[in-house]
């Protein structure tokens, strides 16, 4: 039990995917303009991570034992088809949500946080339950980072920023300061 809590907290705060591993930076900088969309993208990514966790566990246990060199190709195919599947399910059962997510849904395929999650989970040899908990933590951490960044950027819209600093340079330095703040969590599990 302790182990599962550790996995969750570690993925959520200490080793946050965005601020510690630099994963999922494209959506992190691209979609963090508005709080609303940032939150929805985070939830959709978490959902894809959960399904990916199930599929990678299945692949690792039953298939990749015999053909380890196919790992990367099979993972990327799993991620791409999961995203496609999620897209179809959401479209069928909740057209409103589908419209709200718009272009961000297919773009989850090229989100390195998802593939990174699958590779990390495999490298650490997580089982089914651990994998699912890890997916929840990692997805939650990604959502948290997106929301924090979107909130800060909404505030920044109104402030007077020097011309040279506008755009990505500004966002990168904000992200650097946030990352510095998240490093404070690394003392959480020193023992």
């Amino acid at each position: 039990m302790d182990n599962l809590v550790w996995i969750f907290i570690s993925a959520l705060l200490v080793n946050n995917f965005v601020f510690f591993y630099f994963l999922g930076l494209c959506p992190f900088f691209g979609v963090s303009g508005k709080l609303e969309t940032a939150f929805r993208l985070g939830v959709a990514s978490t959902f894809v991570m959960l399904i990916t966790a199930l599929c990678t566990w299945f692949l690792n246990t039953y298939i990749l034992l015999y053909a380890p060199y196919l790992r990367l190709i099979s993972f990327i195919v799993v991620v791409a088809s999961t995203v496609q599947l999620v897209e179809m399910i959401i479209k069928k059962f909740s057209p409103t949500l589908f419209r709200a997510l718009g272009i961000y849904l297919p773009l989850i395929t090229t989100n390195c946080a998802i593939l990174g999650f699958a590779i990390f989970a495999t490298n650490r040899g997580y089982g089914l339950v651990e994998g699912i908990i890890y997916a929840l933590g990692a997805g939650g951490g990604f959502t948290l980072a997106l929301i924090l960044m979107a909130g800060l950027r909404e505030e920044n819209e109104l402030s007077n920023v020097p011309n040279l600093m506008k755009g990505t340079a500004m966002s990168l330095i904000i992200a650097g300061i946030l990352s510095l703040a998240f490093m404070g969590f690394s003392g959480l599990f020193s023992s």
Partner: peptide, 25 residues
């Protein structure tokens, strides 16, 4: 040391982009 840690990466890339913006301008 902070330059080797994740925050240093973000901040240093931000500063380099700033320099490139300055050159272009």
């Amino acid at each position: 040391v902070v330059m080797l840690l994740p925050p240093g990466g973000f901040i240093m890339l931000g500063l380099i982009l700033l320099f490139f913006n300055w050159l272009t301008e």
